[in-house]
Design a binder for these strands. Structure first.
Lengths: 343, 343
DNA sequence: TTGAAAGCGATACCAG
DNA sequence: CTGGTATCGCTTTCAA
């Protein structure tokens, strides 16, 4: 690989000055031609010369130099601590990246480990992003938001359970999911309701609020004497089998299984244990995956209607264009029960 | 929000010069202190003064300016055209990002739409990444690799079906998956074998080679007169039902269903049609998802052993440290059949 | 131990 | 229509 093509391998990267020299013009002219600057007219022969020189040298402009000069970037920072899990969330995430790219932003995914909110904010600010979309795992403080804004961020958007002073907020109401599931089960006559709590890390952000929502829903029907029982479960056959084995001692007549995937796991284990669904125990999942419709009995579920990634990208773009606007609060998702056969 | 905190909102971003002024020292000293430059000793009082000034101003260094000066970045570019679909691939991808971050690289995800190989390479080169890991959807040419290397990229790694001159290659042998599945079915006595071809975009990269591998495996047993039949299918109940409805006219005795998820979809449709599995039709999927073990009959599958994201991150790091090394070829994945009850 | 100044690469003003 | 030149923010010699 010492001389793979006609050029020495370690030749320094060509700059606009090199192009200018080769074309026999000034760097300014190079810049004008290559950027099609309309405020200035350059003769066609000159244009051609510059273009050819750039081509021959394999000239590529230096983004960092450009944004240093420009005083701003088109970077949208997406900090991620724990990874979005599950098809729903990961689809949303991908769509967001695409849409941002289409709007000509540069997406930088920044894994922030071992940094507290303010430390992370400082690290992010070093990149001078024009916008930051915090996907909820890192807790951004009002001070962190200040730091980012002062570093030039035109928009800071949090996606998560709460909202932060100074930032737009896409609130995701996980508790509503648990609440609706349990309200449905109560309406179907259930009184002792299990709530699956996944053991996998990174899901606490979802499971905690869902459990809280479940409890709240049970409170509403206080007169009925509903009991909520958290059920730790990891996404493994053994874990489900163990839970199923002691199922009858729990005396539950229903379970909200966190997601359709956990529901399938648990349902299989219960059925293997001879427990009939929904007669002996009702089951409801969430996410309305195709998967659930294929099970027998067909799985009841909480359908989650999420904002699209495109929508969020548009929100980012609007916020960038209108940095003065008051931070607003939006709902990331809405949910409703889809009743099938398992409940 | 006009004056949310004590500071005017549009005050210009503080620079190291501001810090120097406030601390009553020179910019050089500021740099020394803030970077803990060991080659130079600064008195403790000065250090303190500088630190305090930086703190008070909320100073955050400018990454672009720094790398402009340094002449290199720690950016690892991950171009993505179509998004990796499925739990296996997306887990790998996430792990990769984390591991790179831990090695102190800045991960930039660059969605490249409507760019051909060379155009994309030029666009990527603008960021002066120290490494590029091309996840296979964009076809990188040898010339594109040259452009990237000349722009300062110490390592270019492709992940995909083939390899490109000048770049390290992580070859993913999708055809082996189809081949092993079909060889297994043939060994079980099947002779007319369907191969599911997902209709979803972005999966051609997987389905094409798998089909080719299936055909090759059928050739090997030429004497047995095995026939391979591609079966278009989209991931929807209707599509599966339609396929199942005309199943008997196809006269197939086995099917390789692309993945466990498609397998589950198809298996359910076939069972609803009264077709017994594996007696009348054998089914095998791939990916060895937990899902498949929960089905009845338990789903046979092709287990895919992929390199970890951590491993790839380490490869990137090694390649960056030793840019002179000859491009090498690695295998991304290995596969083997896991026989259960559906075949 | 600290300061002055050069320069990284690109752009945009102001002369010519 | 084109060329000099100041500038963006930071690091790092070289002198003091």
């Amino acid at each position: 690989m010492t001389q793979s093509t006609e050029q020495p391998a370690d030749r320094p990267v060509p700059t606009s000055a090199d192009v200018a020299r080769l074309a026999g013009v000034s760097r300014a002219t190079v810049s004008y031609v290559l950027n099609n600057t309309s405020a200035v007219r350059i003769s066609d022969p000159t244009r051609r010369k510059v273009r050819e020189a750039a081509e021959r040298l394999g000239y590529v402009p230096h983004a960092a130099a450009r944004s240093l000069r420009a005083g701003h970037t088109r970077i949208v920072l997406l900090p991620t601590a724990h990874i979005p899990v599950g098809p729903l969330y990961s689809h949303f995430f991908n769509e967001l990246q695409w849409a941002l790219r289409r709007l000509d932003y540069t997406v930088v995914q920044y894994g922030s480990l071992g940094l507290d909110g303010d430390g992370a904010a400082r690290a992010w600010a070093e990149l001078r992003p024009v916008a930051v979309v915090s996907l909820g795992e890192i807790v951004l403080t009002p001070h962190g938001v200040e730091v980012l804004k002062r570093s030039g961020a035109k928009a800071v958007i949090t996606v998560g359970p709460g909202r932060v002073e100074g930032a737009h907020a896409l609130v995701m109401d996980q508790s509503g999911i648990g609440g609706r599931a349990v309200a449905h089960l109560i309406a179907r006559g259930c009184r002792r309701i299990g709530v699956v709590m996944p053991g996998e890390p990174g899901l606490e952000l979802f499971s905690g609020p869902r459990l809280a929502g479940a409890r709240a829903a049970a409170e509403v029907e206080a007169g009925a004497g509903v009991r909520i029982v958290p059920l730790p479960l990891t996404y493994e056959e053994d874990s489900a089998a163990a839970l199923a084995a002691r199922w009858r001692t729990l005396g539950l007549d229903a379970v909200f299984a966190f997601s359709d995937e956990y529901a399938m796991l648990l349902m299989r284990a219960l059925q293997d244990e001879g427990i009939s669904i929904p007669a002996e125990t009702a089951v409801i999942g969430s996410d309305d995956l195709l998967l659930g419709r294929l099970l027998r009995p067909r799985l009841s579920t909480v359908r989650i209607d999420m904002v699209t990634g495109q929508w969020l990208a548009d929100l980012v773009d609007r916020a960038v264009r209108d940095p003065g606007a008051d931070p607003k609060r939006y709902d990331l998702l809405d949910s409703r029960v889809v009743h099938r056969e398992s409940s």
